[in-house]
């Protein structure tokens, strides 16, 4: 579904991704972990098409097409979703109207007929229940005055409504208390299927106790320095990131030595 090859990117002329390779297939959940500043959120931003992130080398193929050429809205319409680390508050845009508009545009892009109002309402109710999202929040302005947990839950509600094929969760667990974490995880687990895939970016192993990944990758200094299965996450929890940092530095030194 997603193939990232030797991806390099920079922000304000500072290189932040230094050659990432990653393949994600339908039905898989990949966790990307790593210390602060390693490039985790930058990878999410590059994939979603945020301005100011410039790809300097490499390519990203999503569903057989070059992802990097298309506008953020087209990536979303093709089935990519980014759950934001810091969701925006937009007073005056109602949550529900926002979703209606998004679904209308996505469906138009896919040559599907518009969703009938009744069907939209039914779907909205069903998904609210699925992610335990308060009906009153649905009718309020987008994220305005929401608590941190409510904002994150709204991201998962949007995910449920838009039914993307590839969802990237950027530190969705940060700032969540244990109850909110459980609710968010439950929602994601219900949405998992063999047709979609998740990339879960997180700093802590905690989230991965609830959403069990198929693969775990460790990002450090703009590169994936280690990949493994869920056991790797547990090892990280125990030992921290320092041993990996040293390993990575050692590897770099060796590489330099061979040159």
């Amino acid at each position: 579904m997603l193939i990232i090859k030797n991806l390099h990117a920079e922000v304000e002329e500072k290189e932040i991704l230094k050659g990432i390779d990653l393949s994600v297939n339908a039905g898989e959940v990949h966790a990307i972990m790593g210390p602060n500043g390693s490039g985790k959120s930058s990878l999410a931003s590059v994939l979603a098409g945020r301005k100011n992130f410039h790809v300097t080398r490499g390519e990203v193929i999503f569903k057989g097409k070059n992802l990097l050429d298309s506008a953020p809205e087209d990536r979303a319409r093709e089935g990519l979703f980014l759950a934001f680390q810091y969701p925006m508050e937009i007073p005056g845009v109602s949550n529900i109207n926002f979703l209606k508009t998004a679904i209308a545009e996505i469906r138009a892009h896919r040559n599907l007929p518009p969703l009938e109002a009744k069907e939209f309402l039914r779907m909205s109710r069903e998904k609210q229940k699925l992610v335990e999202f308060d009906a009153q929040l649905v009718n309020r302005s987008l994220n305005e005055g929401f608590s941190g947990g409510e904002k994150k839950r709204n991201e998962i509600f949007q995910l449920a409504m838009l039914e993307p094929e590839l969802a990237i969760l950027d530190e969705t667990d940060s700032g969540l208390d244990i109850d909110a974490l459980r609710i968010v995880s439950k929602g994601v687990n219900k949405l998992r299927s063999d047709k979609n895939a998740f990339i879960i970016i997180t700093h802590y192993q905690r989230l991965l106790e609830y959403i069990v990944p198929d693969y775990v990758h460790v990002l450090y200094d703009g590169r994936i320095v280690k990949s493994g299965t869920k056991e790797l996450a547990m090892e990280l929890e125990e030992k921290g990131y320092d041993w990996l940092k040293e390993e990575a530095r050692g590897k770099e030194t060796r590489e330099r030595a061979t040159i």
């Binding site: 979603a48 098409g49 945020r50 301005k51 506008a71 953020p72 809205e73 990536r75 979303a76 319409r77 979703f81 980014l82 934001f84 969701p87 925006m88 937009i90 845009v93 926002f98 979703l99 508009t101 998004a102 679904i103 545009e105 996505i106 892009h109 949007q158 838009l162």
Partner: peptide
């Protein structure tokens, strides 16, 4: 710009 990106990232045209 951030608000625009947020809306666009949900499939809403510019």
């Amino acid at each position: 710009e951030e608000a625009l990106f947020y809306l666009r990232s949900r499939g809403i045209g510019e």
